[in-house]
């Protein structure tokens, strides 16, 4: 790049950045990696749309046709699958980074937007999983949607919105399809763009008051390298491990083996063994979300410690967050070990 004029990608960044914010070991690039995964999901998702047919008769068989008949369909499907799984992880780790570096300080709105993104990512993963319409999604589909019914007052309405009828049936695949490829995706893109705009609006990535600055070109190069590395890793995983596909779903026959929730809902599934559906399936998850939402408002309103790992001013917020995260992880691991 002999030309020293800024490229498009450079223009997405401020001209100079605090060295601290740009350091890989500060953000671990988790937000950026999440953006990259979203882009991969969009591209592969569009390819899948050319073949997927959301109907009871064709949902499963079109997934099989993608996997086995369309050239490279298996690869595109694997990429989409793994990017989706990874996104749940990178977004969560990113959130943890934000908490432990005090990144939420003076950035409360963006914290809420980010939380919205996390919810959307999980819902997208869930709706996408159901589109497979194989025997392994039966639990997810029936239990997940029936949980909606437990929501006081709104339950039946939410259920109808999700399922498209009184029971899971002919209207359901296209319902989930609509949510997955449009409803939730548009919301994700909207919140995502807003989120990144807010980062700049809030004065860039959080950083300690006085730090040396460096050129954005360095950051763009790091991002480029990270992009290549993450894409390669995603590609290798997609070459070696296939997205699951079980025999077709038969919602009228009891599952042969114990059905497991998708891994990101294992925690909820585990909780459901101990408490009523309303408590474990609705109130508890909402409570966790509520605590997270309240974090910059109720747990740590200070501006000190911004940009410092494990800053003292945010101790309370950090501990509560860590406890909530550990609880979810513990339930998930317990569910996974069954």
């Amino acid at each position: 790049m002999g030309d020293s004029r800024a490229s498009f990608f450079e223009h997405l960044h401020p001209a100079t950045i605090p060295a601290r914010s740009a350091a890989f070991t500060y953000t671990f690039g988790l937000g950026g990696i999440s953006v990259l995964l979203v882009l991969v999901l969009l591209v592969t998702g569009v390819l899948l749309m050319f073949f997927y047919e959301p109907s009871l008769a064709r949902a499963y068989s079109s997934v099989a046709a993608i996997t086995y008949e369309a050239p490279y369909g298996w690869f595109v499907r694997n990429l989409h699958y793994w990017a989706g799984q990874w996104l749940v992880v990178t977004a969560t780790l990113h959130m943890a980074r934000v908490v432990f570096t005090g990144g939420y300080k003076r950035r409360r709105l963006n914290w809420l937007i980010g939380l919205g993104l996390l919810v959307l990512v999980i819902l997208l993963d869930f709706t996408g999983l159901v589109l497979r319409w194989d025997a392994d999604v039966s639990w997810a589909l029936l239990v997940g949607t029936n949980l909606l019914r437990e929501v006081p007052l709104l339950g039946e309405t939410l259920y109808r919105l999700a399922v498209g009828g009184e029971t899971v049936g002919a209207a359901t695949p296209v319902r989930f399809y609509g949510w997955h490829i449009a409803g939730l995706t548009i919301a994700l893109l909207f919140l995502g763009v807003w989120h990144i705009w807010r980062v700049r609006r809030d004065g860039g990535i959080s950083h300690a008051a006085r730090t040396p600055r460096l050129s954005r070109r360095a950051l763009v190069r790091t991002e480029g390298l990270a992009t290549l590395v993450v894409l390669t890793m995603l590609g290798v995983v997609s070459l070696l491990w296939d997205a699951p596909l079980a025999p077709p779903a038969d919602l009228n026959t009891p599952a042969a083996h114990e059905s497991a929730a998708p891994w990101f809902f294992l925690g909820v599934q585990e909780a459901l063994r101990f408490a009523s559906p309303l408590l474990a399936g609705v109130i508890a998850p909402l409570l966790v979300l509520g605590v997270l939402a309240a974090l910059p408002y109720a747990l740590d309103r200070s501006a000190e410690g911004e940009g410092h790992w494990f800053n003292a001013a945010g101790r309370r917020a950090q501990i509560v967050f860590a406890a909530a995260l550990l609880l979810v992880i513990a339930l998930t691991v317990r569910g996974a070990l069954r």
């Binding site: 490279y72 690869f75 190069r221 290549l228 590395v229 894409l231």
Partner: peptide
């Protein structure tokens, strides 16, 4: 060198997909 190696890695992935297909 690193960007070069990473790019080579990505190329290998795409070639790998071709091979597996």
């Amino acid at each position: 060198l690193w960007p070069l190696l990473a790019t080579a890695g990505l190329l290998l992935v795409v070639v790998g997909a071709w091979l597996r297909e």
